[in-house]
Amino acid sequence: MSNTLALAGAPPGVLPRTIARTWRKRSVMPGFGLTFGFTLAWLTLIVLIPLATIFLKAAGMGWHEFVAVGLSPRALAAYRLSFGTAAAAALVNAVFGLLVAWVLVRYSFPGKRVVSALVDLPFALPTAVAGIALTSLYAPNGWIGQFLEPMGIKVAFTSLGITIALVFIGLPFVVRSVEPVLADLGKDVEEAAATLGASRYQTFSRVILPAIGPALLTGFAMAFARGVGEYGSVIFISGNMPGKTEIAPLLIVTQLEQYAYAGATAIAVVMMLASFAVLLLINWIQAVNRRRMGA
């Protein structure tokens, strides 16, 4: 209560200090002003100001034009494809990423360090190379494609291919989000649970999963958000057929190719708002969860 009052009454000039003193709960911890101020300043300079340009540019076009470009049937089909494949890929990654993180943290097996190093490959490999490599694997004459083709499964140049590329791109997000938390999670809680008679499955679902839940959700959200915008790798493996395998970032490039910068920013704005909403929702769910768990 008193916090909000203090904020409303503060003159603009002293707001940062007021925030530091009253917004947060009193703490002996030092460095709030320094770190919080720096975080905001750097965030504004590198992310917010540059990003504001696309909103400014998009605002330059009229509302009608904005809707005509940003929400055209073709754009909607592209959003559906981009968001759908990104969600599917992020789900696959949430399941298998957790499994990989678990195996890496808890078990020992030969070659574990190499496997661990391999997980970050998608970050290091230029996305275009990943796209080319995946296409050459899954094309009808590729190493894997030649076996799938006779079974009637087409991967390259379909939405399945896009999903596979996005699984590749997003995997490290999940593994690397979960891994440190899992490693930090001592075995003592599990031992306690086991001593109290919990089965292994109960321990996992009641003790481990809630602890790594936030990290897993974060990994899922980041893999998803990254997948929605991905261009370099997808462009090779998707067929780019309008309305069928045309991803949203391709539409942005298409607009640029017509020198329509405003049109490009219109699509970019719609995509960004949607991804931002998803990220915000997930971060909010986590915050609520934390509060409920009393952490």
Partner: peptide, 15 residues
């Protein structure tokens, strides 16, 4: 704030 920090992940490289 956390979401804003995540934002660059969700921005298409093209953008």
């Amino acid at each position: 704030l956390i979401t804003l920090i995540d934002l660059p992940f969700s921005v298409s490289p093209v953008v």
